[in-house]
Design a protein around this nucleic acid. Sequence first.
RNA 1: UCCUUGAUAGCUCAGCUGGUUAGAGCGAGUGACUGUUAAUCACUAGGUCCCUGGUUCGAGCCCAGGUCAGGGAGCCA
Length: 504
Amino acid sequence: MYIRDIAQYEGKEIELKGWVANRRDSKGLVFINLRDGSGLVQCIADQSKLSETEFNNAGKLGLESAISVKGIVVKDERQIGGFELQVLSLHVYQFAEEYPIAKKEHGIDFLMDQRHLWLRSQRQWAIMRIRNTIIYSIHQYFQKEGFVQMDAPIFTGNACEGTSNLFETDFYGDPAYLSQSGQLYGEAMAMAFGKIYTFGPTFRAEKSKTRRHLSEFWMIEPEIAFCDIHQNMDIIESFLQFVIKQVLENCQAELKLIDRDTAILESSLEAFPRLTYDEAVAIIKGEKDVNGQNSIKSLEDELAAVNEQIIALESEITEREEKIAVPGMKKGEINFNQTKIVQLKQALKDAEETQRNIPQWLASAKNFEYGNDLGGSDETVITRLFDKPIMVYDWPHEVKAFYLKRNPEHPRFARGVDVLAPEGYGEIVGGGERETDEQMLRSKITEHDLPMEAFEWYLDLRKYGSVPHAGFGLGLERLVTWMCKLKHVRESIPFPRMYGRLLP
RNA sequence: UCCUUGAUAGCUCAGCUGGUUAGAGCGAGUGACUGUUAAUCACUAGGUCCCUGGUUCGAGCCCAGGUCAGGGAGCCA
């Protein structure tokens, strides 16, 4: 019996097992918010309906104590799920020790240290359930489209794209690296099965400290034989839209719990704009407007808005501080104002950080040098102008991986495609059409200063039935982060691994 | 690796221009209250002011070096 099914049992007696998410008492009454992993329900322990021991135990329950209760389900519109439980008997599995996560705001470092417990909180529960729906619908999409799920190795002997820093391990005395992409193996498997996808962990040893990086994350990499860049973009679009639709249909409650405004998810069900690199650069530099919006001007407007917001926050803080300094105010009102002041100061800190960042982004956008890869801030700048993901394709070949095919009409462009999520989230997918010509690949491998012998098996794929093919890599955590509109990827995975974070 | 912001009670923070015995709220403990939603009210306990060195009659506050953390750049999904 789980809380999520409680509506079917109105007026009936049921048994629930779970943890105490909150407890309050009053004379003769104890209110217990019970959490069982499937949902939350308030249980009322009434002195007149319980034995003395049971009632005393109810009053002693600390947060996260484990209990089971039997009782009658009663409809009550005031409650979270619309129902509450009138307790008839209560069994205690364990009285929990003092729980470190208080019913109050905490700093991120503290919460990350308590990640094993933080996962129990409502917001994390909602995020992880959305993550689960995303994973499930990814499999549903590919399975219904006839893709075969296959796994690329995690230990590899070579740095596949020769770019990222890899984690080195000892493989029976030889150096081996943790995989940073299953891409090349995906191509081999696609030549065997036509359409495949991998879904596995990926490792990057970058000392990145930003809101979009993890050292260990999950990547989905489909690879399709007989597919060009445009068909590849069609697949990316229909795939992402399927996932978004599933989340919208199945996670309404979770989205509401985390206050996700779903307007952008809904508009993402319309066709994604497809821009060439040249068009994207023109937009970033402010040479070309989008829907009447200019990137440079919108940044400047935001900076002005942030400046105003800072002044407003500062004056509200001063005002409230002066108010509580006057003697005679009731304690409850002082508390309320103090809590408010703490929140306002946090908002002020965030605003000041934005205030420091925007000028850097502006400078980066204005001085963007044609031919470079888009930086994190450039992605932020461009995606703020759209209400759905955008696809940028045909990149200068120098900035992209060696295995990408050239545009046959304009060989200075490689047929890569990046999908940038809206609302400033940036790259969630990177992919493209692969080079099919063996000699071309050999010269690119030499050009990138990569060890030829490590790629001989890969080059074999171009000797035996080389065909046009394409694929892409989706960063699961980045998709979860955007869809939940999280501030940081670290909240999108149960136990994040990042620079400086190996525990818990 | 670079730029930037920070570290004070279990947690979130205040602490003025360097000045006597370092504060609040939450949490914990005790008590009051029969409908609470982070309940409320009263009382109690709770401190290596990140570390090392320096300046000073005097340092939580100033200076130097370090550690850890937040944000950004680079790199990327």
